[in-house]
Structures are given as structure tokens and as C-alpha cells.
Design a protein around this nucleic acid. Structure first.
Lengths: 96, 96
DNA sequence: TCTATATTAGCCAAAATTTGACAAGTCATA
DNA sequence: TATGACTTGTCAAATTTTGGCTAATATAGA
């Protein structure tokens, strides 16, 4: 599940309109539409705002949103999976 | 192990100078130095060229290099690890 | 010390990417 | 047709990245 799908799903469950969420985020509707379709990426604060507006878990939202960014920049490299695993190891090192 | 450390290690084992590799890559020495220290990131073709120049495995080089990019853009998010795992799952879906 | 060579630090402008906004488009429904 | 919801396309402004230059620092040998 990607971020755009996620917020679309929740928005529809709550029967909200794009323009309502757009207004809350202080962006225009086309921009919100693009975020929902993954054509543009939300900024961190917007992710947080959306979690609140949609009564969702902020951590989960950030996780999915970050995951989108990661996938976007590994592109279609064949070594993508190996790189992800390598990155995990490096991250664990860093946190120690 | 990050990309910069890796090429530095191999370069020193082979007793090559930064300026020699820089020349092969057609960049100046300061730029090469920055790549080695991770201050700048190499471009894909440079990674491949370096693998050849240092008799190293191209796939491995690309993996480490990609991993650097990933780590750079997850920044210091607390959800970084979870995002990596999530991204792995999404990637696996995509490849199916 | 003096010199030469290797490496690093800082800076800047050009190039590339991202961003936000707008106008106009489609689609469905009354 | 008319309206409301959403999408598409385009554009310039803003931001980021890039490449390369100059100067600083370090290191080793004469």
C-alpha cells in the first residue's frame, strides 16, 4: 500500500472531498489530487496533518510515506533489494 | 561499509593516487576526494567505471552505492527501519 | 627548514530538479 | 445542459545539485 492509496481510502471511508482536505492543508485541489495519485509527494508536515485529519496513526503514515520516497529513488535498479537489505544493516550500525 | 570507504580501501591496496582515478573518471581530484569521503555521490557510470578500475564486482558496487543513496534520504527519521522493510515488501509486489 | 606532492576545504555559478499555482480538461449526475 | 468533483498540462519561481576552480592543509623527503 502506497501513501496516496492510503489517504484516498481513508478519505472515501470518511466521505470527505479532496477540496476539503486540500483546504485543511492549505494547498489547491489539483495539488491534493496529485498527492493522492502519487504524482507529487506530500511534505512531512502534510503527512502529519493528514494523519490527524483522517484519525490515522502518525507513525504508520510516516512509514508509508518514507517507503514511497525510498522506492522512488531506488528506481528500477536490479540491485534494489540487495541495497535495501544493505541499508538496513548500515542503519542498525548507525543507531548503535 | 559505505561506498566511499570501499573505494578508498581498494585504491590504497592497489597503491593508486586519487588523481589517477580522478583522471580516469575525467573529474578533478577535489571531486574524487569528495566522493571518497561521501561528501558527494558518484554517478552511476562512475560507479561502474570504478568497479572496473579497481577490479571489483560491479553489482556489489552498485548495491553499496544505492544503499548510500537510500540512507541519505531516509535521513534520521525514527521510522526509517520500518520504512525500509515496508519498501522491501512493496518492491517484491512490484516485481511480481 | 624548504619543497614537492597528495589530499581536503570553501566557494561560486551553471544546470537540473522540485515546487506551487493556475487554467482548462474530463467525467458523472441531476 | 449545468454543476460539482476530480484530473491534466503547463509554467515560472524557488531550491538543490553539479562541476570545477582556488586556496588551505598535510605529509614526506632533501
Amino acid at each position: 500500500m502506497q501513501f496516496g492509496e492510503k489517504i484516498k481510502q481513508l478519505r472515501e471511508e470518511k466521505e470527505l472531498l479532496q477540496r476539503q482536505l486540500a483546504a485543511s492543508l492549505e494547498i489547491d485541489t489539483p495539488m491534493y489530487s496529485k498527492i493522492e495519485r502519487g504524482e507529487r509527494k506530500a511534505k512531512r508536515e502534510q503527512v502529519i496533518a493528514l494523519a490527524q485529519l483522517l484519525n490515522a496513526n502518525e507513525e504508520e503514515f510516516l512509514t508509508i510515506w518514507l517507503s514511497d520516497k525510498i522506492i522512488e529513488n531506488v528506481g528500477d535498479e536490479t540491485s534494489a533489494l540487495a541495497a535495501l537489505k544493505h541499508a538496513e544493516q548500515e542503519l542498525k550500525k548507525k543507531s548503535k
